[in-house]
């Protein structure tokens, strides 16, 4: 296979593009030519040496980049797709040498595992699931959960991978009556999983038993909300949702994320905090990622905004570089970096 090295082009001056606490450390250019769609991180192990790698996705090519010295990257593997384009990278925590991708046009039609054969180092892909897939999430402890519809039933399926990304176990979770749109892990509770439904409810599963534990309505003011993160504290469930209808006209600013608290025993909840854009900044949520206490969002203005969820305010705004709007943002799963990308294949890595 070919080994390409990214060009370390002249990086833009830090002062002009790195507001707040963001420090540009590296850039890689995905030269495939087609539209970039996503970025992610994963661990890759060769000869007992584990390295944090970057995965980039264009419409029909997914590439694995290994680190060189001094923050440069080389492309070492590429997986090619011919019929169905890539929609998103699905990283699976706690597993080495495996990353998953969701393929489809508008909706997910396939989930594939991307591997590399250890004996001849050739790229392999394995179809994990196909059909009318609504949601997918990689979970801690090498697990992957999907929701899909057959003719009349919704299936919620969890797969568990072996440590080397190999053989897998399957388990079904009890499906709710409503279509699941997204999943979120509950931080610190490995056996709990949340789902947000099309009817504006949050459901909780016990992943060990597959039981559906509770359905909680999040209220009509949170319509079509998507859950990004949850944690349990003092018997209450705190949930970070993206704000569904942020408008610049609201008097308190433009909310992009919101924190709500729910009592899982009573299914009662209330709003705790809105995470708004600073005055003078406009834009609605396009896509985003939440990790630990930090949320990042690509806005319709083409900028990226970052919030400290504990402080409650926006801590950095990253304007477009070279007049190219940002199109995706991910927190690294292997360290404390932010990966941001443009449609033309430029990926920038910031330390935060």
């Amino acid at each position: 296979h070919s080994v390409e090295q990214n060009e370390m082009e002249d990086l833009p001056a830090c002062d002009s593009v790195n507001p707040g606490n963001l420090q540009l450390v590296s850039k890689l250019k995905n030269p495939s030519g087609s539209c970039s769609v996503d970025v992610g991180t994963m661990w890759w192990e060769t000869a007992g040496h584990k390295e944090p790698c970057i995965v980039t996705a264009c419409e029909y090519i997914v590439s694995l980049w290994k680190p060189l010295d001094t923050w440069q990257w080389k492309k070492v593997y590429s997986w090619h797709f011919t019929e169905v384009p890539v929609l998103q990278i699905v990283s699976v925590p706690d597993v080495c040498n495996l990353v998953c991708v969701a393929l489809g046009n508008l909706e997910i039609r396939e989930i594939r595992a991307l591997l590399c054969s250890s004996h001849d180092e050739s790229e392999e892909q394995l179809l994990l699931k196909s059909g009318n897939i609504k949601a997918v999430l990689g979970l801690t402890k090498r697990r992957l959960v999907t929701s899909s519809w057959t003719l009349c039933d919704q299936q919620i399926e969890m797969m568990t991978f072996a440590e080397d990304g190999g053989s897998k176990e399957k388990q079904f979770l009890m499906p709710p009556e409503e279509t699941i749109l997204t999943f979120a892990e509950v931080q610190g509770m490995q056996e709990a999983l949340l789902g947000t439904t099309i009817m504006n409810n949050i459901v909780i599963w016990n992943l060990k038993t597959g039981q559906l534990l509770k359905k909680m309505h999040v209220g009509d003011s949170y319509q079509a909300s998507v859950c990004h993160k949850a944690y349990s504290e003092m018997g209450l469930l705190f949930v970070v949702l993206r704000h569904p209808c942020a408008k610049g006209s609201e008097s308190f600013g433009s909310p992009v994320f919101q924190l709500i608290v729910m009592n899982p025993k009573t299914a009662l909840g209330m709003g705790v905090m809105l995470y708004c854009l600073p005055h003078g900044q406009a834009g609605r949520f396009l896509e985003g990622d939440v990790k630990d206490n930090f949320a990042a969002a690509v806005l319709t203005s083409g900028k990226i905004a970052i919030w400290d969820l504990l402080l409650g305010h926006c801590t950095a705004i990253l304007p477009p570089i070279s007049d190219q709007n940002w199109s995706f943002v991910k927190w690294s799963g292997t360290d404390s970096h932010l990966l941001v990308g443009q449609k033309d294949g430029n990926i920038f890595i910031y330390h935060y």
Partner: peptide
């Protein structure tokens, strides 16, 4: 709104809901 509006709180909500829910 206050914490009281959320009703009785249990630190063991996950275990309790698991024992109450259908298998």
């Amino acid at each position: 709104c206050s914490k009281a509006d959320l009703g009785p709180i249990s630190l063991n909500w996950f275990e309790e809901l698991s024992s109450e829910a259908p298998p």
